[in-house]
């Protein structure tokens, strides 16, 4: 598998099979339940877990994750509580922090990303995804990540081509987040053509490609991995389960079970897709 960046754990997660990369907003709907939920993802076969640190202006998120952000912030989530949460988690999968740049920038002395990255390394995070930080503005965070041995994942959109793609691919490490469709996050019932086109454009680059935005079922996962993805990122479909739990007042255990079982379905789908791809390659 492809060369990667600083984190050996992230590199290992993409070796020997497709990676299942689930996302949840930390603290949704509260701290303790959220711990159980993330651990359920791990039991369900997560290879990497993206932990969302909620920001008050989540401009890249659709209604599902916006709802999670509101619940988590109302429950009192802060960067320090987020770091405490990460320390407390008992999971095998390497952890990546997904958040917006202002929270990274303000942490500590409020004058740049270094303090946040240092703390992230200390609590055992392996990298970052920052949806409002394009390559043009990312150098300070990239440097801090290299200093502390963390990875910086960038998003490649269906509209990213040419020079922009080069600029991103020269800064990315860990994996590249292939945005499956235009728009914001949110579960969808189909696979967009733009996904295949994006994967084709990225083929020549030696970094794992994880596809996200809209994946909601094992069948999706299968098709996307069969189409060449090294991993699948799933957020809104999982957050939907948490939201339904809140609405229907389900027990933490019941919600955790559902998260674990959807995780198994997604992971199995990804593995079917991988087997089909390997078979096709061998018969060629």
């Amino acid at each position: 598998m492809p060369a990667t960046g600083n984190s050996e754990a992230l590199a290992a997660a993409f070796e020997g099979g497709p990676a299942y990369v689930p996302y949840l907003a930390v603290g949704d709907p509260d701290y303790d339940a959220s711990l159980e939920y993330v651990e359920a993802l791990d039991r369900g076969g997560a290879d990497v877990i993206e932990l969302g640190l909620p920001f008050s202006e989540p401009i890249a998120e659709g209604p599902t994750i916006q709802g999670a952000v509101v619940r988590s912030l109302e429950g009192g989530m802060t960067p320090d509580r987020f770091f405490a949460f990460v320390e407390k988690l008992d999971v095998d999968a390497p952890l990546v922090c997904m958040t917006y740049y202002n929270l990274i920038y303000q942490y500590g002395d409020g004058d740049g990303p270094r303090d946040f990255v240092e703390k992230a390394a200390e609590v055992g995070l392996e990298g970052f995804v920052v949806p409002d930080l394009p390559a043009e503005e990312a150098d300070p965070l990239r440097e801090a990540c290299d200093e502390f041995g963390l990875d910086l994942v960038f998003i490649v959109a269906p509209t990213t081509t040419g020079d922009r793609l080069e600029r991103i691919m020269s800064r990315v490490s860990g994996y590249v987040y292939v945005q499956a469709r235009l728009g914001t996050t949110g579960a969808k019932s189909d696979v967009a053509d733009s996904t295949t086109e994006s994967l084709d454009r990225l083929r020549e680059y030696d970094v794992p490609k994880a596809v996200g935005f809209g994946i909601s079922s094992g069948e999706h996962a299968e098709r996307i991995v069969a189409g060449g993805a090294d991993g699948i990122i799933v957020g809104s479909a999982l957050v939907d389960i948490v939201a339904e739990g809140v609405e229907a007042d389900l027990s933490t255990e019941a919600v955790a079970d559902r998260l674990e079982s959807l995780s198994r379905e997604l992971k199995a789908g990804a593995e079917r897709g991988y087997a089909a791809r390997t078979e096709a390659a061998e018969s060629r």
Binding site: I59, A60, Y101, P131, D132, L133, P134, E136, E137, F154, I155, V156, A157, P158, T159, T160, T161, R164, I168, Q179, L182, G183
Partner: peptide, 11 residues
């Protein structure tokens, strides 16, 4: 600066 999601950068 330009702190926006990648999808908007080409636009």
């Amino acid at each position: 600066g330009q702190y926006v999601p990648e999808a908007l950068m080409p636009a």
